[in-house]
Design a protein around this nucleic acid. Structure first.
Lengths: 117, 117
DNA sequence: CAGGATCCAGCATGATACTG
DNA sequence: CAGTATCATGCTGGATCCTG
């Protein structure tokens, strides 16, 4: 995540109010985060499933972005104590509540992709 | 803009289909882009107005992000041939159509900012 | 006023090798 | 399988100086 310092509204900032849009932006900035949320919106996935779905991402980066999403309570990580290891990722309620935004971004993108041709 | 290579859906990619979500992400990634769109959603603004509103941004970066938004047809740049120069920025129809997403991000952020406390 | 042109630092991502 | 660790690199944004 970019984790930019939080951008404040200006001039009515009192007591360092955080801009909600920037808050949202911060949670979802990171090259693969939206795609991760997108795939998880279709259901629980294991680590390697995600890794295969997001072709191009390296395992290290996938791990890190998942950890950040977990830290921000967007994603839940469930570890099964088995050998070989099994770890399942799913959306938290907070993550689920983000899906409508993802859908709108998809709709918007689809529309303007067409008219760009 | 990050201008990441376009992420494709996987496996049903045929003929290099572009993921609409990634398209949207690409157009709006950049530290200040969402805030720029946000301020412009309130009406036409001059360069220095924007610069003052977005406290912390340098003029060089503001120029660059505005140029990218212009290139992506999100923002319209109107130059008045006067001395001293006057340049006004406003949203294009495409930019305006993005506002609902911005609003949702704001609402979502506001909600989860609270419950984070 | 509204930039353009450089240069540079930091950090996010990528590549690769290794592990319980 | 699901990572961790390390190193390499490329971009993004910031700082600074200059201009019509």
């Amino acid at each position: 995540m970019a984790r930019y310092f939080i951008q404040n509204e200006n001039p009515p900032k009192e007591k360092e109010e955080i801009c909600p849009v920037t808050y949202t932006q911060n949670l979802t900035s990171g090259r693969w985060k939206l795609m991760i949320l997108w795939y998880l919106s279709k259901g629980t996935k294991r680590f390697n499933e995600l890794h295969r779905s997001l072709s191009g991402i390296s395992k290290g980066i996938l791990t890190r972005q998942l950890r950040e999403l977990e830290e921000d309570e967007m994603v839940h990580r469930e570890v099964y104590k088995e050998v070989p290891p099994k770890v399942e990722y799913s959306l938290t309620p907070k993550g689920v509540s983000f899906i409508p935004i993802l859908d709108m971004m998809g709709e918007w993108g689809k529309k303007h992709l067409k008219s760009d041709q």
